[in-house]
């Protein structure tokens, strides 16, 4: 199930978005990123910033479903940046250096049949964000934090 709650504090021009990602339904992966994109459009951010955030989060959302059991995404938008925190309680990433290399993938055949599993997602998330951090522990889960600056465009 996917759930979105928004709470805005107009005086500080801050917006929080929360999404829950179902890990069992690959066909629905991307709903949260689609909603984020709509929210960013409503805020009137530049198309380039919106696209960077949407692509970065979509890659992460696909990973949460393909490699973990779904999870939660919290997005925090202020006047300077969009901060996306993606948490899952999957198996974690054993070798981050390998995972960050283009072409490294442990994706299942099912994921590959959907058009994914080229080992391009994490490098692409890094490319589209101004800051990215991965906290992961084998057997416990993964948290990916990305920051996309609004000012830089």
């Amino acid at each position: 199930m996917l759930d979105m709650q928004t709470a805005s504090k107009p005086h500080r021009a801050k917006l929080y978005l929360h999404y829950e990602i179902d890990g069992d339904d690959f066909t629905r992966a991307g709903e949260a990123s689609s909603k984020l994109k709509q929210s960013l459009k409503q805020l009137g951010l530049s198309p380039a910033v919106i696209r960077r955030a949407a692509i970065a989060m979509y890659e992460g959302e696909i990973n949460m479903v393909a490699h973990a059991d779904g999870g939660v995404i919290d997005v925090d938008i202020d006047t300077a940046a969009i901060t996306i925190v993606m948490r899952d309680t999957g198996n974690g990433i054993e070798d981050i250096d390998a995972a960050m290399k283009e072409g490294y993938s442990t994706a299942s055949d099912e994921v590959r049949q959907m058009g994914f599993g080229a080992g391009m997602g994490l490098p692409n998330m890094k490319k589209h964000s101004d800051y990215m951090k991965i906290d992961t522990k084998v057997g416990e889960g993964t948290t990916v934090t990305m920051k996309i600056s609004i000012m830089s465009e």
């Binding site: 692509i55 979509y58 890659e59 283009e102 959907m114 058009g115 994914f116 599993g117 080229a118 080992g119 391009m120 997602g121 490098p123 692409n124 490319k127």
Partner: peptide, 9 residues
């Protein structure tokens, strides 16, 4: 392309 990973990247 049939590879969405490449389209995105």
């Amino acid at each position: 392309s049939d590879l969405m990973s490449d389209v995105l990247a």
